[in-house]
Amino acid sequence: MTAYRQALLVAAAFVTLGTAGCVTINIYFPAAAAEKAADRIIDEVWQLREGRPASDERKNGEAQ
């Protein structure tokens, strides 16, 4: 029980540190996430999702 409580406390400490770390990391632009977000919006605006799965669309886009 004591070990369990200790684990919880230490985990909480690491989560706090980790969250602080994320804030630091996210100062840098998340390029891969942005590309994914852009593709999802482009799919909708250009209506590219119907008939073809998004992964095929993406491959086609990169092959060009």
């Binding site: 690491f14 989560v15 980790g18 990391i25 996430a33 994914k36 977000a37």
Partner: peptide, 15 residues
């Protein structure tokens, strides 16, 4: 546990 938790917090932009 902390690493797995923080990994979930990243990876997607809010759109």
């Amino acid at each position: 546990a902390a690493f797995v938790g923080s990994a979930f917090a990243q990876g997607n932009l809010e759109i």
